[in-house]
Amino acid sequence: MAGKIKQMIDSIINQRAKDNPMLVGVIKSKLMLKGIDPNKFTSTSDDDPAIIAKLEAVMKELK
């Protein structure tokens, strides 16, 4: 499977930043400090379970 990571990153940014460009930058920075560089993932990137687990932890806080 591929592309899940980009999908999750986009979802986190959309939900958290709500189109505020300043917040988009901050949320991307927070992801980078977790070791997830949003710019490195595309719709064809492999679904790395370790990264998916980190993103799931972030998404849990959104609920």
């Binding site: 958290r16 917040l23 901050v26 927070k30 400090l33 977790k34 932890a57 806080e61």
Partner: peptide
């Protein structure tokens, strides 16, 4: 700080 950052947009 990671946990705080997950829970709020406040700096």
């Amino acid at each position: 700080i990671d946990k705080i950052g997950d829970m709020t947009n406040v700096t």
